[in-house]
Write a protein that binds this DNA or RNA. Structure first.
Length: 492
RNA sequence: AGGGAAGUAGCGCAGUCCGGUAGCGCACCUGGUUUGGGACCAGGGGGUCGCAGGUUCGAAUCCUGUCUUCCCUACCA
């Protein structure tokens, strides 16, 4: 069989790739560093998008769409941001191709069609958006301006990995403008909280909320808030960020408003985003050696019904009972697939749906129907039980909620078992190498020490957790005094 | 970006050293028997060997260039 997966322990990276490719989430493409998101993977993204979109709307945001291209002069307006992205920008320099006069049938870039001003393919949209907001904001009555866009962005990465880092990816980016600093900070924190709730309640993936250190901060931001999740190899993955941008973009793009006293003030800004990287996070957070394990709330298919045909006469009876069950489940709001493909055998289907992470499988044969039962199997625990067909939809609903909770608990228990308080440099290094995970340790707060630790250990400060209690201590590297522990890990 | 490996049918691979007109398993198609954990029998279709040059009577095989992917390390918001 070509469907056999590499195991996690054998090679974690290959296991991950196998899940993505064999689970039908994505494919490589003819374009370097770019992937094709297949229907099953895109279904996951749609689930994420719909849930997040509702959360954004519920917090007062509206969607809009801004151009893919950013004139270079706009892009460079906010210096730090431009510098941060400069080395990974795709740039459009020409607007026309023509037939190669030397080599007929081939196309060349028409040298006559050079753009006066190059266009940067957006790696993020702050520049074009703030240039636009300038025209939209005149008065305090225009604020707050709360806008989100669902879009693709391009960052020319040298080394790519499916979903985790690709040259082009899908994301959402929220960009808001506020009259006061407090309001903008509150917005930044609110959206971080939205992300954290989404990760925990929908993806069943526990996250640490925190603030980035200066070194790890978004270019152009005053503060970057993050949610950090732990993958099954103990490495950290930044799952979402929310930035307090201060007045940096307002000043760069001259975005001012008249306050109630008619004095002109610069607006205060935020931006926040999550991307298709979340799909990579989802895969690595829960899956096992048999395949994907998807949380019911995001699984494109929550329940699959597999008929067990026996003899030519059984098909009709089973199909009609299975169809009735499917309709009953659908009526309960469950996403269900009746896999009545007669050319594949049950065993094959069982393995296939396990690989794809379908949370619940119902097997239905003549024997079951005679006894008024069905065999129900959970993907997360692999438990199988015979359950009465009568009232099954209600039980399945409950089971889906339990599965959602169970995989969250499992991920949380894993994270807790791999989170260590460490007070010496020796233990710090030993933990990273021998029992990878999150390390809570003291740091003197200086960028130099942070850099030194990174050089020596390849671990970075993932965040200063928001709930970190005050605690006197000594920096793990420099020995200088520290007031709280910060979160270290090797990261994706 | 450094090191390593690999591109031959949809997938996994053999063939490459030693040049002679492409093969195996799975998948696919047809017919039949089957169906409670990746079925079986019979028949069949599909590949300008990643791409571009070169050497040669002749290239999957030798030479040069190039593209893509993976792994390890490094880098990255």
């Amino acid at each position: 069989m070509s469907r056999v997966l590499t195991s996690r322990s054998e090679n974690y990276s290959e296991w991950y790739n196998d899940l993505i490719l064999k689970g039908g989430l994505a494919d490589y493409s003819a374009v370097r560093g770019c992937m094709v998101i297949k229907p099953y993977g895109y279904g996951l993204w749609e689930g994420m998008r719909d849930a997040l979109d509702k959360m954004f709307k519920d917090t007062g945001h509206q969607n809009a769409y801004f151009p893919l291209f950013v004139p270079k002069s706009l892009f460079e307006a906010e210096e730090k941001n431009a510098e941060g992205f400069a080395k990974e920008c795709a740039v459009v320099t020409h607007y026309r191709l023509k037939t190669d006069p030397v080599n007929k049938g081939k196309l060349i870039v028409d040298p006559e069609a050079k753009l006066e001003e190059e266009l940067v393919v957006r790696p993020t949209s702050e520049a074009i958006i703030w240039n636009t907001y300038k025209n939209w904001i005149q008065s305090y009555r225009d604020l707050p301006l709360l806008i989100n866009q669902w879009a693709n962005v391009v960052r020319w990465e040298m080394r790519t990995r499916l979903f985790l880092r690709t040259a082009e990816f899908l994301w959402q980016e929220g960009h808001t403008a506020h009259a006061t600093k407090d309001e903008a900070v509150a917005e930044t924190k609110q959206m971080l909280d939205v992300y954290a709730r989404f990760a925990e309640e929908w993806m069943a993936m526990p996250v640490i909320r925190g603030v980035k250190s200066a070194n790890e901060r978004f270019a152009g931001a005053e503060d970057t808030y993050t949610i950090e999740a732990m993958m099954q190899d103990g490495k950290a993955l930044q799952a979402g960020t929310s930035h307090f941008l201060g007045q940096n973009f307002a000043k760069a793009f001259e975005v001012t408003f008249a306050d109630k006293n008619n004095t002109l003030e610069y607006v205060w800004a935020t931006s926040w985003g999550v991307s298709t990287r979340l799909i990579g996070a989802l895969v690595m957070a829960h899956s096992d050696d048999e395949g994907l394990v998807l949380p019911p709330r995001l699984a494109p298919v929550q329940v699959v019904i597999v008929p067990i045909y026996k003899g030519p006469d059984s098909k009709e009876a089973i199909d009609s009972r299975a169809t009735a069950l499917m309709l009953e489940l659908q009526a309960s709001g469950i996403r269900v697939k009746f896999d009545n493909d007669d050319t594949a055998r049950p065993g094959w289907k069982f393995a296939e749906h396990e690989l794809k992470g379908v949370p619940v499988r119902i097997a239905l044969g003549l024997r079951d129907i005679e006894n008024g039962v069905a065999e129900v199997a959970r993907r997360d625990t692999k438990e199988k039980a015979s359950m009465p067909l009568e009232g099954l939809a209600g039980k399945i609903q409950t089971m889906l909620v339990e599965i959602q909770q169970n995989i969250y608990n499992k991920a949380l228990a894993f994270r807790e078992a791999h989170t260590y308080k460490v007070d010496t440099w020796e233990e710090f290094m030993r933990r990273l190498d021998e029992t990878p995970g999150f390390i809570l340790a003291h740091w003197d707060g200086s960028p130099e020490t942070e850099e030194e630790i990174k050089e020596l250990s390849k671990a970075t400060i993932r965040c200063i957790p928001l709930d970190a209690p005050e605690e006197e201590g000594a920096c793990i590297r420099s020995g200088k005094p520290s007031k709280r522990r910060v979160l270290f890990a090797r990261a994706y």
